[in-house]
């Protein structure tokens, strides 16, 4: 009887909680996907080219950073592959995107707990910048 109860409770919670997440996630996913299809994503990344040097990355890596932040790690790695980066640069990119990736979807999921969405985004980008700059300075 307890076995069935566990399954029943798990199902009920799963349904309730995933609905809570999905309702918010669906529209944002569509917006970001259209942004990518339309080619605006690579235009946005032009803005970020100047600050790439501070992070220890070549300016071409901006596209990888932006696709990683807005989408997820797979398109970021795809954008990174043709750049022939050094091990240090790949590690910095991996660290930056490890901390700040898939920001739209993941922030929506996390903010369902009640934390402010903008604070999650700011915190992740700031931490990622600190991490990238730190490794860039300390890795000789």
């Amino acid at each position: 009887m307890e076995f069935l109860n566990n399954i029943k409770n798990g199902l009920r919670n799963g349904l309730k909680i995933s609905t809570k997440i999905i309702v918010y996630m669906l529209p944002f996913y569509v917006v970001v996907d259209i942004l990518e299809q339309s080619g605006y994503l690579s235009k946005i990344s032009l803005i970020f080219k100047p600050i790439m040097g501070v992070l220890g990355l070549p300016s071409e890596a901006a596209v990888a950073i932006i696709s990683g932040m807005l989408l997820n790690l797979y398109p970021a790695i795809a954008a990174m592959a043709p750049l022939s980066l050094s091990i240090k640069e790949i590690t910095i990119l991996g660290l930056f995107l490890g901390i700040a990736h898939n920001l739209v979807i993941e922030t929506i999921i996390l903010s369902r707990s009640g934390v402010k969405a903008y604070s999650v985004v700011i915190l992740r980008i700031a931490t990622a910048c600190v991490a990238a700059m730190g490794v860039n300075i300390l890795w000789t």
């Binding site: 566990n6 399954i7 409770n9 798990g10 199902l11 919670n13 799963g14 349904l15 909680i17 995933s18 997440i21 999905i22 996630m25 999921i109």
Partner: peptide
């Protein structure tokens, strides 16, 4: 997400 969370919460229960 629905499948992941539901399966996880059943196991967690």
């Amino acid at each position: 997400i629905f499948v992941i969370i539901t399966l996880l919460l059943i196991v967690y229960e």
